[in-house]
């Protein structure tokens, strides 16, 4: 079962969404409405600073609600609501999150061309004491990074990195620049070429502190 949270929506809208989830034959009861806690997707309208009472998992997809005619990118849900559009969006999220993982080193070029930089350390409700999020935030705080850079440095998948970028972007914590002029270097090659003393030192220290991935 996947859980969908609603943030900033009025009660009749939430009731409508609950009914759609219950009755859609295409969703086949795979989605249910979450009142609080972890959710697989979060519908957000007029985002406040906090996502409370919900908590985001690494794979949680944010679906921003926009008025029809507004410019948008990523997963959006347009107001006034249309059931078929919500269902389509949830099916896409289902496919993205639960289908086979994308091989490392291959990301959507259009997305990876953007350069991201963290403007301010994210608040606790975004990081949730989650080490992976903290590390992603650290990488983004040291110079501009592409999605590919982020995946390479963190060893995390595209979904998690992309989602994290999206959350930061929604909260105005990211500085985003257009694509790099030069072709994107295949990410996998980079760490192998950074062969220096410091790198060796860090692996030894990580091993000592029990930080090596098993």
């Amino acid at each position: 079962m996947r859980y969908l949270g609603c943030l900033g929506l009025i009660k009749p809208e939430v009731d409508l969404i609950r009914t759609i989830l219950r009755t859609s034959s295409r969703l086949d009861k795979r989605w249910a409405l979450a009142e609080s806690g972890e959710c697989d997707a979060l519908l957000v309208y007029n985002a406040e600073k906090s996502v409370a009472p919900f908590t985001l998992k690494p794979t949680t997809q944010l679906i921003m609600i926009r008025r029809r005619g507004e410019k948008h990118d990523g997963h959006v849900f347009l107001k006034p609501f249309r059931a078929d559009e919500l269902i389509d969006t949830l099916i896409v999220i289902d496919t993205e999150n639960y289908s086979a993982p994308v091989p490392a080193g291959t990301v959507n070029n259009q997305v990876s061309a953007n350069l991201y930089r963290l403007k301010k350390w994210p608040p606790a409700d975004i990081l949730q004491q989650h080490k992976n999020y903290m590390l992603l935030a650290v990488y983004l705080s040291r110079g501009t990074k592409t999605l590919q850079d982020l995946m390479t440095l963190s060893g995390q998948g595209e979904a998690l990195c992309n989602n994290f970028l999206k959350v930061l972007q929604e909260r105005g914590l990211l500085q985003i620049e257009g694509g790099k002029g030069s072709p994107i270097v295949t990410s996998i090659e980079r760490p192998a070429r950074i062969q220096d003393e410091k790198k060796n030192f860090f692996s030894l220290l990580k091993a000592k502190l029990g930080l090596t991935k098993k």
Binding site: W121, S141, G143
Partner: peptide, 30 residues
Amino acid sequence: LPVIPVDVRLPKDVILLIELLMAQAEADMQ
């Protein structure tokens, strides 16, 4: 800069601080 809550009596909290430092250095190296 990373700002995290810590209880320095706990080795795991101190280790997290060091891990974040190393992550910064790795990003700088890249």
